[in-house]
Design a protein around this nucleic acid. Structure first.
Length: 152
DNA sequence: GCCAACGTTGGC
DNA sequence: GCCAACGTTGGC
């Protein structure tokens, strides 16, 4: 099994939004980046875990843990002209964008902020989300880094 | 709101 | 296939 970090803007969809869903699951839709699409397709699997990361907010950082509960499958919002994520170049016969379903696992007692991650940069060397200019909304996390962040 | 970094698009 | 223009991300 693999570990991941998935960013979401809390104003748009927060860890509390996920926890308050009836089944505490959510389709992680709207990803329109080929690198992330390929990770969903080739490397994500049921049983993987991911950090839920709040971005573009007062205190960016890891706020919780989610389970990956589906294989990658076509993102329905790409076919919906009313959706912000509509992609007219994608067809159901040949879908361009994928998503995975996530399920709430737990909130951290205290968020591990980006500032805390940076303060532990030596321990977290190579963590993708700390790489300069890293903007991917989904990035891999090694088991070593996963455990280190949970211990913070 | 600014701006740096980076991905995507499209003309050639 | 190059590269300039443009759009988006996301920390600050």
């Amino acid at each position: 099994m693999a570990y991941w970090l998935m960013k979401s803007e809390p104003d748009c969809f927060s860890i509390d939004d996920l926890a308050s869903r009836p089944k505490q699951t959510e389709a992680w839709d709207g990803v329109r980046n080929y690198q992330v699409r390929n990770m969903f397709r080739d490397r994500f699997d049921v049983g993987d875990q991911a950090f839920f990361y709040h971005s573009s907010c007062a205190e960016p950082g890891v706020v919780g843990v989610v389970d990956i509960v589906s294989k990658a499958y076509p993102d329905p919002t790409q076919f919906d002209p009313a959706s912000d994520h509509y992609d007219p170049k994608s067809t159901p016969e040949n879908p361009r964008w994928l998503l995975v379903d996530v399920r709430y696992r737990r909130k951290l007692d205290k968020p591990v902020t980006l500032a805390m991650l940076k303060a532990n940069a030596a321990q977290l060397a190579g963590l993708a989300v700390l790489a300069p200019g890293s903007r991917l909304s989904v990035t891999p996390v090694s088991k070593t880094h996963w455990d280190a962040i949970l211990a913070m």
